[in-house]
Design a protein around this nucleic acid. Structure first.
Lengths: 190, 190
DNA sequence: TTTTTGGGTCAGCCATATTGACTTAATTTT
DNA sequence: AAAATTAAGTCAATATGGCTGACCCAAAAA
């Protein structure tokens, strides 16, 4: 961390930092773009996609867990979730343990759509991986992880990455509803 | 590029691809978050930031060039640009060569805000770079560049990166006014 | 039993995007 | 010189996805 080489390429960093800002802008725009096209066929938007993604990833998660992950308000989620449930992409049933909690899962229809969306984005990522060298992937992962501020969110990405001294610099805690995203069991499906 | 190792870690890719989707989601959310906080102080949003960024980066660019880069409609840009001009963050003056074109530049006030925004995001990126190894940065750049679909947009990022079929572009890196992203047919799809 | 929690909903506001139809002025084409 | 094209700006209407505040209900916890 306190690396002498670091100082040596600071001027190089200058350029690199500005470039990185644009790389993030363009890459994210195109990354979401491939999904937007599919979503539009169904009259859905990115908000729906996020729900499908996180429900697919942790089936049975509760509304409040989803809220904590998405960091939006209950009312905002409600709108999209209602559509997804009404149109049979997502099921919401009361938990056996705690009748207040609604456990969210994807229907077959929802899973099918989510598969399409994931495939489209993963194809793009794969193509980017293939254009780079194998070693680039690890660097990519490390830098991306470094951009994530919230320790709870970081924890989703298990393994290696040295979690630096927990700098939970403000602006993280918009806990509109409850506490932490509950370090999420995170099922590594597929 | 056609690398035998590629096949060997395909199963590893599977996990990695899913992870990358989430990395992009969380990283971008936090990356934009640091700027959102500053923008909010001024009653601005991300749309304003994008204008400030691209005007700062290529001072004197025209409205239509900006539109091509942002890929939004004239009407959408108009609202935001009008605010920035009225509040003296951006100047818009007719070109000497072509009186129809309005050349956009930042005022000192606009440059000051843009500096703050850039610094905030660059600090975040720098911290991510520092948490990774020096070698990670190059991998990050390569993968991010691979995610960018439009050749015109890719061309902004000069130098090394093996543009799939591409020649090593003689563009001197990151020039202030950079080679315009080829006037862009402006595909309004969706 | 009272309080808290998880979830849902109504109502309204704001920011950002969209399409379509025009206007104006400047430049280019014919 | 007249006509066509281009760059920019504008009006109006619409959609999406955020937000706040105020409630309600039922289940669980205190």
């Amino acid at each position: 961390m306190a690396d002498p080489k670091k100082h040596a390429n600071l001027f190089l960093h200058q350029d690199s930092l500005h470039e990185a800002v644009e790389l993030l802008f363009f890459a994210y725009r195109d990354f979401t773009g491939v999904a937007d096209a599919i979503l539009a066929e169904h009259g859905f938007g990115r908000a729906h996609h996020r729900v499908l993604h996180f429900v697919a990833q942790a089936p049975g998660l509760s509304v409040s867990e989803l809220l904590a992950t998405l960091r939006i308000t209950k009312q905002s989620l409600s709108r999209v979730l209602k559509q997804l449930v009404e149109q049979d992409y997502v099921t919401s049933k009361a938990s056996g343990q705690d009748g207040r909690r609604r456990e969210l899962t994807l229907t077959d229809k929802g899973q099918a759509l989510q598969n399409r969306l994931a495939r489209a984005q993963q194809d793009l990522i794969l193509s980017a991986y293939e254009q780079a060298e194998a070693s680039s992937v690890d660097g990519f992962r490390k830098v991306m992880l470094g951009l994530i501020q919230d320790p709870g969110d970081r924890a989703r990405f298990a393994a290696q990455l040295p979690q630096p001294q927990g700098q939970a610099t403000g602006l993280s805690q918009r806990s509109g509803v409850n506490a932490r995203p509950t370090p999420q069991p995170l099922d590594r499906r597929r």
